[in-house]
Simulated scan of single mutants.
Amino acid sequence: MRWITPLAVGALCLTLAACTTSPTGRQRLTLASDAQLDQMGAQAFQQYQQERPMVGGSPQRYVQCVADALVRALPPQQRQAENWQIRVFRDDSANAFALPGGYMGVNTGLLEVARNQDQLAAVVGHEITHVLARHANERVSTQTATQLGLSVLSSAAGLEGAGGQQLMGALGMGAQYGILMPFSRRHESEADELGLFLMADAGFDPRASLALWENMSAQGGARPPAWLSSHPSHGQRTQDLQARMDEALARYERARQAGRTPDCPRP
């Protein structure tokens, strides 16, 4: 077992070297190459466009208008750092996604739930900040580190046979609910906060984010408890957004005074 100590020390050094700070000041682990993830994002986005029906015309112009207004509100370095692209896909689910590199998609179902440009900006702003905060890198890095830790533990403890496999399965489930999913919930909460401020900076009314989640809640459907979900509950999201609303409204007023008054006609 003498090899375990050098391995643990090496992993610790790697982890410390890969620790960075998120836009909200949270410590995070980023082991992956951003350039490689951006390339993978571009490839995945191209494949997605080939496999899913896209919608052009007024829906695409509407979504593009909102996205452009949000991107213009970014600092120049962030605005130029990504290859910002957004597409509308024909899908009844009220969903949107973002990929490393600035590639985003919005489903037509979301356009039914987000009932005006401000509500849509809440979603697109959320997706833009997922990209800027490098959440994909952190997610991949956390999964990699977790799998490495379980592998080392299995070898060190000599967990073999049916009993060992059962224990490792329990440990794996504990890692899923105790580490990986909470990380994703933190990502979602962070993107909610950053996206709220971004939409306000772009001249969209941040109060629309609260209305959006009321619309989402009205969609109904069974939801798992928050600790078993990769996303915060609707109630938790609304509470967190409300707690930051005063600052968001102040930023919104400054944006409007500076002439940022987006006007994106809804199809």
Results as ranks from 00 to 15, higher is better:
47 Q>Y: 13
56 G>D: 15
266 R>T: 04
220 G>W: 10
260 R>F: 00
117 Q>M: 00
105 G>V: 03
222 A>T: 12
116 N>V: 00
60 Q>A: 15
132 L>S: 10
260 R>L: 03
51 E>N: 14
31 L>C: 05
258 A>I: 00
55 V>T: 15
187 H>A: 15
213 W>L: 04
99 L>G: 02
147 Q>M: 13
262 P>V: 00
234 H>S: 06
66 V>G: 05
174 G>Y: 02
71 V>T: 10
12 L>C: 10
248 A>K: 00
200 A>R: 01
165 Q>H: 12
188 E>V: 04
86 I>E: 07
72 R>H: 14
151 S>Y: 09
210 L>N: 02
37 L>C: 05
214 E>G: 10
194 L>K: 07
36 Q>M: 13
16 L>H: 06
224 P>W: 08
132 L>P: 05
228 L>A: 13
38 D>Y: 10
41 G>E: 01
23 P>V: 13
224 P>F: 11
95 N>L: 04
173 M>R: 14
33 S>Y: 08
205 D>H: 15
238 T>Q: 15
55 V>R: 14
244 R>H: 11
106 V>H: 04
265 P>A: 01
267 P>F: 02
94 A>Y: 11
95 N>G: 08
28 R>G: 05
8 A>W: 10
103 Y>M: 01
175 A>L: 00
199 M>P: 04
137 N>D: 15
141 S>L: 10
218 A>E: 09
61 R>M: 14
186 R>I: 09
244 R>N: 04
3 W>Y: 14
20 T>K: 12
30 T>Y: 13
78 Q>K: 13
136 A>Y: 06
207 R>Q: 15
128 I>W: 03
164 G>H: 05
96 A>R: 04
158 G>S: 11
147 Q>V: 14
74 L>R: 06
121 A>S: 02
79 R>W: 06
17 A>I: 06
70 L>M: 08
64 Q>G: 14
